[in-house]
Nucleic acid binder design. Structure first.
Lengths: 129, 129
DNA sequence: CTAAGGCTTCCAGTTGCGGGAAGCTCAAGA
DNA sequence: TCTTGAGCTTCCCGCAACTGGAAGCCTTAG
């Protein structure tokens, strides 16, 4: 199967698929004409990767997860460990964004947003919190 | 004032300060020996930038905000507009992260995390939800 | 036979810096 | 006075995870 159809079926842009091959996440065969020839297993892997990426896993995490997926002798604890670390990273990011949101929304509320130059937002930025 | 002391006072690494000069956010003078010579106003700008960055504004937003800050004839509506757009971007990111968090925490909870290979996390990634 | 579309590779750009090399300058100690 | 050592300079590479675009081959329909 050529990259275009694979792209549709796996839900990933061709560019991304080529990139994943570059970094060794998938290893499609090649046809005589030089085109990539994907097997069902490749599509399956790509869909796996797409799903893992939407959950926010890094490429390296994806590599690890894919390896574990294909390792019959894996222990689920290994998978859980990767997922838990990612979860705490997500929590950190959420906390950080919420903190920004908090400050920023106060400032936005305090700003008149009219034709006059006076602005609490700029005043805050200028003198630190 | 040399870059080292400015770095301490503005709370930004020297590398970052040089980068900000590269992209035209600050324009320190130069001493005869070629060293950057920062004025108080430069430090003030750098602190402004540092604060804006911790609130998550992009460099381009920072440039805009700095321009507005120095523009006596600004209208606070312009500032508020930039801040509001950033705020909605933050809200989008928070929503996305929360969605990831939701899915991921369910999966993590469902995984035994023991020596056995069976794993709901991998199963989910494999078949998509 | 030709044109369009799909495929290939390769290179550059994105965001916001950080690391490190090579080399100049300056201040302090033997 | 000479020599360190720290601090400064520029320059270029690398990161994550792609995306866009150029140049060129392959295939298929008209």
């Amino acid at each position: 199967m050529n990259i275009g159809e694979v792209s549709e079926r796996a839900g990933l842009p061709p560019k991304t698929i080529r990139y994943y091959e570059d970094i060794g996440l998938v290893r499609p065969l090649r046809s005589d004409n030089g085109y990539r020839a994907f097997r069902e297993s490749d599509i399956h892997k790509l869909a796996f990767l797409g799903r893992a990426r939407t959950l926010g896993f890094s490429i390296e995490d994806c590599r690890t997860l894919l390896d574990l997926y294909e390792d019959e002798s894996r222990e689920s604890a290994q998978v859980k460990s990767v997922a838990k670390e990612h979860l705490t990273a997500i929590d950190r990011k959420i906390a950080q964004l919420k903190s920004m949101r908090q400050t920023l929304s106060h400032l936005v509320d305090a700003c008149q947003g009219d034709y006059r130059p006076d602005c609490p937002i700029l005043e805050d930025l200028a003198k630190g919190s």
